[in-house]
Nucleic acid binder design. Sequence first.
DNA 1: GGACTGTAGATTGTCAACAATTTGCGATGT
DNA 2: ACATCGCAAATTGTTGACAATCTACAGTCC
Lengths: 229, 229
Amino acid sequence: MATPDGLFVLEGRPTAQLIADQLREQIVQGTFRPGQQINESVMAGQLNTSRGPLREALQRLCQEGILVSHRNRGVFVLELETEDIQEIYAVRESVESAAANALLDGSPEQIKATCEVLRETIGEMAKQVAVSDWQAIARLDMQFHTSFVAGAGNSRLIRIYKTLAAESRMCIVNLEVSYPRVDVLVEEHQNLLDLLEAGDRKGLLKAIKRHMQKAVEDLTERQPDQVTA
Amino acid sequence: MATPDGLFVLEGRPTAQLIADQLREQIVQGTFRPGQQINESVMAGQLNTSRGPLREALQRLCQEGILVSHRNRGVFVLELETEDIQEIYAVRESVESAAANALLDGSPEQIKATCEVLRETIGEMAKQVAVSDWQAIARLDMQFHTSFVAGAGNSRLIRIYKTLAAESRMCIVNLEVSYPRVDVLVEEHQNLLDLLEAGDRKGLLKAIKRHMQKAVEDLTERQPDQVTA
DNA sequence: GGACTGTAGATTGTCAACAATTTGCGATGT
DNA sequence: ACATCGCAAATTGTTGACAATCTACAGTCC
């Protein structure tokens, strides 16, 4: 939030939050492999902090669900099963549908502003597709959907979706799924944007449903014995 | 989770979790007033533990959203505005709708088992209505909806809903809203159960929507200068 | 008299040492 | 040879003390 003078209120909760954000980014990028243990002491040393704040960060990520904790044994990176993928995308469909409905019930300005942001993200995505930067594409994919949900203006919905977005990125990166056909990906998001702009509620909801179902298929159909594309 | 022998795996993370559960119960029951500060040292003393575990518990509740933290100033019980109530119930409608769809797409046994649990809760609710125990009624109300969502079997959906249920209880208790007419409340839940049992998807979704809209009205319409019913 | 500055108190944020628990390996007995 | 018991290393859980930050009050200056 910016003040009228363009200054920023920096009050909040930095340290543990900062560590958590950093770790989350590392995890969703695949720097930590699923099932890998995270040692408190060594990690604290690497980040040049103490075990206290790091512990808080880990606990936070545990609650988000991308880490799992076993008492007296440590925390481990979540291992995603087929079941998890289905769960994640089922919830995502529900949340995005709710956001779509709220957005279309909102003011035209709200819709317009959201579309603007989405358009920019798609532009970025197209650029990264050109250079085949999968890591960046995955990030922008999630940024698109997160911005979409954010457009609805429901802070709780946004909070919920951030976790889902992180888990989705883990699915994509860890399963080494380089999106089947990237140009299709840009098209699909453009389609969602067009439907939102047109105010086609029914079409948008259907498109969201299809988008999610397709993603689950892409992520689950191929057997895990396939290492790279 | 129970093992085949009926034994329980107690692995998990007790202490901080236990403290968090205890505090959450106190908060949603209204023992702590909205906006009230929670002092780490004194609270740790009261619970006969150290600041470390208690801090973890507080942080957990912050992430759940029923506490808010101001850096270097402490944590405070969330103050619910009209906006929050609208947000909470909008998300609840979305989550319960998703659960309803998943449940109706599931096996008949799954539906049957869920109905059984819901029926029991309604029975309990009727008993508490007879003695006008508002606190218990609010708890059972949320238990009904939580069981409903749990019936869908999506662990992420359940986790999300638990937070919403806690916030809802805070709304009800803190606003001193003694449900407008309690017999209507039992009827309404019975209606939801009937629709689920009948497999009437459209009717169930509509009923959920109405249920939520009505709740928002009840919680927001009366001005806060009214202290008790 | 009003506004600003400086200080005091209190509370949270961080840290390092201690205690408890678990896992793995090796010795022992059958 | 196999299973069981016991020990040792490592890691997490907990604790108390120290440091940084913020709020409130009092004193001073304009």
